[in-house]
Amino acid sequence: MNRFSEFMLPPQKSTLAEHTDALFNFVNVTSIILLAGITFAIIFFAWKYRRRSENDVTPVITHNNKLEITWSVIPLILVMIVFGWGLNGYMNLTTPPADAYEIRVVGKSWLWEFHYETGHVSVNELHIPVNRPVKLIMSSDDVLHSFYIPDFRVKMDVLPNRYTSLWFEATEIGESVIFCTEYCGTAHSNMLARTYVHSAEDFITWLETAGSADDDLPPAELGEQLVVRNACNTCHSSDGARLVGPTFQGLWMAEREMQDGEVITADENYIRESILEPNAKITAGYQPVMPSYAGTLNDRQIDAIIEYIKTLSN
């Protein structure tokens, strides 16, 4: 039983996972027993009552009310158990404790942003403390997304015009994957993020140093890291390959043609504007899908990215 459940389901890493899994197992076991019974009946009847001659006479059995009632009521009882059990788990899943630690989540095509109380923003990395309820308050900047952490058994759609929320309490230090489960276009399946579960102390240290940890890196190196951390590299390559967006290689000081025919030299101002207001000028041949990083990246970080792009000349 345990082996079966471990094979079928991801590891249980939140307080609510066990409840969900128990119901999952209950439905599976009951179904398999009933399915085995039905399959046995099919095979047994097909063999036992196989046609022996063209003149076989079969009995006239038109109906049997007792049987009809039996096989309506027993399934009814079973499904009502499943209903109550599922509802119970669901109420827990949707009722966060009052003292839950809050984190703002913003879904953009195709990355996840996490805003912490300190003002720090991390992209595609959710850092949380262990053994403490965490509540995510989520919204989308564009189309629908859905926030899903299989290890925690939680999922909630992320909508552009309203806040939705979700809560969990992680029980283990470690990492878990986050998926987007509402189809959102080209890179939907690359809209991955990771949860990092820290001990309470480590989490506090992380929060305090997160913004400043990069201070002593040389700008170009910092820029390289930021490009990865902010998921620029899901859309921009550094080796000339064309992804959703144009490559960074050879971008610096190149003549860029815009959709409206204007030609612009890719200098500091152009790159800065491209990052903060990507839809102000659209590069010819591309879709206006880049999310804005205003509020996510500060000036110093943008400078670092520009420094990095400068190093990628042809």
Binding site: F24, F83, Y90, R153
Partner: peptide, 10 residues
């Protein structure tokens, strides 16, 4: 299975 609320969330 999918009709059961808590399991369907997963």
């Amino acid at each position: 299975m999918l009709g059961a609320l808590s399991v369907d969330i997963h």
